[in-house]
Nucleic acid binder design. Structure first.
Length: 671
RNA sequence: GCCGCCUUAGCUCAGUCGGCAGAGCGUCUCACUCGUAAUGAGAAGGUCCGGAGUUCGAUUCUCCGAGGCGGCUCCA
């Protein structure tokens, strides 16, 4: 990401005399406030962000905050949100205001208009915003008492509600209001000084609207007031704003690049999978090429689980619903499980999780401490009735296959087992070039009745997970209230090739299901003890993992995963037979080869293979055929062409075979 | 589930202010036999998402449903 701040421009504190504005202090210190990326606000000695117009009561110093810094951008974006709100209220009188905070890469503002916004409305709002920016309105801070604010905002019911919420730490609304006395921000016309708009806001803001160099409105959508489904839906307009036009352009390019990687688009282009309407929403079919991806991934993860000492089991897709009452999943998740089928007096359900069935396998006979940890693994297909609005490509589906495993062990063994699982997971993700991780620790919300089990068990389980997570040395982000109903979890978050974070694998520690299923083992002293179980999924769902990998690799899968590894291209049809023989030679080494014997021109075939992101091409003309050679072309790490080189068939086969049949981490490109 | 938008050929998308529907790519056929990202010509291909309604007539308007997209909420 481009930014206006470089280390060499490290900011220095500037002294400010009592009664002097920070603005004047900066100017007298020689700061060019008109330069691109110039400071837009300051940080006082207490670390608070302040407007440039801020005037301290006593002598102090401030640190300028440049527009391109994270804080500067947040102020810039929040100021853009104000400009947008003003434009909206100008164009659509009577529209009520919600809140308008800065967010990653931009800002939004929530409105209650008389009708939802259309794309044409957004264009008009954008134009109006440009006028406001051109008018160079000053953002002017005005402290106000609660009573006066209530009077002034009598018609803004949402703002009134915010006043009551003043200072709620962690509340999104505190962005607007914050602790301490309320402040209003007035927009004053650059020439006349006339007030054109006012908003209840903690600030700080840019000195004036002119300091918004580049913005764009992105989309409008509904959002619940204060994020609750129980509340009224407002119309949210998202925008983006940057410290320079170039930064905006770079951001829009990034979005375009991300769109090109969209697995839903690539899935069609590369003929991997589809979602036939006839099946229903969120139900995917994998075409032959997607089938190869699945098979390779399954083979890979199966072997890894064998190496880690897992036993392989199989369980049905359907069960009488008593099982899910025993596990505790029903009735908590009744609405996300497919509805029951009534058969011979029993209610059957498609399974939405595999753990209860694995518990039955554990319980099928007496267990000794000697066989713990007992590790069960299954490619378990489950069905979850995701709400219609949340289904999304392969990343959120209604039918999925999990690489689901459950480790049953003694409470004492749990920390070591979790440590091993975490290592296993990180190693596995690294094999896919995912190596920038952080962990999320999802814990119980003690106030919620969504969680079962005793306080002591929760504390113990959470402590065990937390200690293991901390010991991994990775960053650990708390996720209060995000636990499963039966226990806390660690999820591994990984950054993909273009820096987007995906939740990948999870490890969950569960005291509850073993108790509910009355799982036991006989300890060394002959006593009967209850094991704990550790749920873990490495890919999570294979569908989702394929979706994430497709975007991570932009469809250019490493050679071992590529559905077609080699395309053989004849210079003219004369070489078709020769290349068939070459292809057979490669196939004999386990390589997936296709000969393109269509009547396209060679150039066209190269283009097609390139677009299909096939890692290797072998091309042969009459000269090659005579020499028992091929011209070898490959995709390099940047997915551009490698340099063509003429090589003997045996050598080429050898080079390709090494890239295709070895461990996934191996460098796939000839050097 | 909620709000908004969308659904036309295998894919990407025009279009009909209500009157027997179009392009590019892909597919097929023919000609060309070619040396590292598109050879040319021709043809086939459509219950215009489904159902109901309004109308002389609906792909177009209305309603219901399905599916998709962008968000919100949710994600064991």
């Amino acid at each position: 990401m481009s930014s206006s701040v470089r280390p060499s421009e490290a900011v220095q504190t500037v002294p400010v005399a009592a009664g002097q504005t920070a603005f004047d202090a900066l100017v007298s210190a020689g700061t060019d406030l008109n330069a691109p990326g110039a400071p837009v606000v300051v940080r006082d000695s207490g670390g608070e962000l302040r407007d440039l117009a801020w005037t301290p009561d006593s002598d102090t110093s401030v640190e300028p905050v440049p527009a391109g810094s994270p804080d500067g951008l947040a102020v810039l974006r929040h100021s853009a949100a104000h400009v947008m709100a003003q434009a909206v209220q100008d164009l659509f009188p009577g529209t009520l205001l919600g809140i308008g905070p800065p967010i990653e890469d931009g800002f939004y503002y929530d409105f209650l208009p008389s009708r939802p916004f259309t794309p044409d409305d957004l264009a008009a709002i954008e134009k109006k915003m440009a006028d406001i920016i051109k008018a160079n309105q000053r953002f002017s801070r005005r402290p106000i008492t609660d009573e006066a604010a209530r009077a002034e905002l009598a018609h803004e019911k949402f703002k009134l509600e915010l006043i009551g919420l003043k200072g709620n730490a962690g509340d999104e609304a505190s962005v607007e209001v914050g602790a301490g006395a309320l402040t209003m921000y007035d927009n004053l016309d650059g020439k006349s000084g006339e007030r054109s708009w006012t908003d209840l806001c903690r600030g700080p803001h840019l000195p004036s609207t002119r300091r918004i160099p580049a913005f764009k409105l992105m989309r409008s959508a509904a959002a619940y007031w204060r994020g609750s489904e129980q509340n009224e839906q407002l119309q949210r307009i998202y925008g983006t704003a940057w410290a320079s036009r170039d930064d905006l352009k770079a951001y829009l390019n990034r979005l375009e690049e991300a769109a090109k990687r969209d697995h839903r688009k690539l899935g069609i282009e590369l003929d991997l999978f589809s979602f036939p309407d006839e099946l229903g929403s969120g139900l995917a079919v994998f075409h032959p090429k997607g089938g190869i991806l699945r098979r390779e991934l399954e083979n890979y993860v199966r072997q890894r689980h064998i190496d880690e000492g897992f036993d392989f089991v199989n369980t049905p897709h359907i069960s009488k619903d008593g099982l899910f009452h025993t596990s505790g999943h029903l009735p908590y998740y009744a609405d996300t499980m497919f509805p029951p089928m009534e058969l011979e007096g029993a209610q059957y359900r498609l399974k939405a999780m595999n753990c209860p069935m694995h518990n039955l396998i554990y319980r099928s006979r007496g267990r000794s401490y000697r066989e713990l940890p007992l590790r069960l693994f299954e490619f378990g297909s489950v069905y979850r009735f995701e709400k219609s609005g949340v289904v999304h490509g392969l990343t959120r589906v209604r039918g999925l296959t999990m690489d689901d495993s459950h480790s049953y062990c003694t409470a004492e063994q749990a920390p070591e087992e979790i440590r091993k699982l975490l290592n296993f997971i990180l190693g596995l993700l690294r094999d896919f070039g995912l190596d920038d991780f952080y962990l999320e620790l999802s814990t119980r919300d003690p106030a919620s009745d969504k969680f079962i089990g005793s306080d002591e068990d929760w504390e113990t389980a959470t402590k065990v997970l937390e200690d293991t997570a901390v010991a991994s040395g990775l960053d650990l982000v708390p996720d209060p209230g995000g636990a499963a109903y039966y226990g806390p979890k660690i999820s591994v978050q990984a950054k993909d090739a273009i820096g987007r974070t995906w939740q990948m694998s999870t490890v969950q520690l569960d005291f509850n299901q073993p108790a509910r299923f009355e799982l036991e083992y006989q300890a060394a002293d002959g006593s009967r003890q209850q094991p704990v179980m550790i749920h873990s999924a490495k890919f999570g769902s294979i569908e989702r993992f394929i979706g994430v990998l497709t975007e991570h690799y932009a469809g250019a899968f490493p050679a071992w995963l590529s559905p077609v590894q080699v395309i053989a291209i004849p210079v003219s049809q004369e070489q078709n037979d020769y290349l068939e023989r070459v292809a057979d030679q490669l196939r004999a080494q386990g390589i997936r080869v296709e000969v393109d014997s269509s009547d396209d021109r060679m150039q066209k075939k190269i283009r097609t293979a390139q677009k299909q992101k096939v890692p290797f091409m072998v091309i042969a003309g009459s000269a090659d055929e005579e020499a028992e050679a091929v011209s070898f072309r490959y995709r390099d790490a940047t997915q551009r062409n490698g340099i063509p080189i003429d090589q003997a068939v045996a050598e080429v086969a050898d080079v390709i075979a090494r890239r295709v049949n070895v461990s996934p981490t191996a460098d796939m490109y000839p050097s």
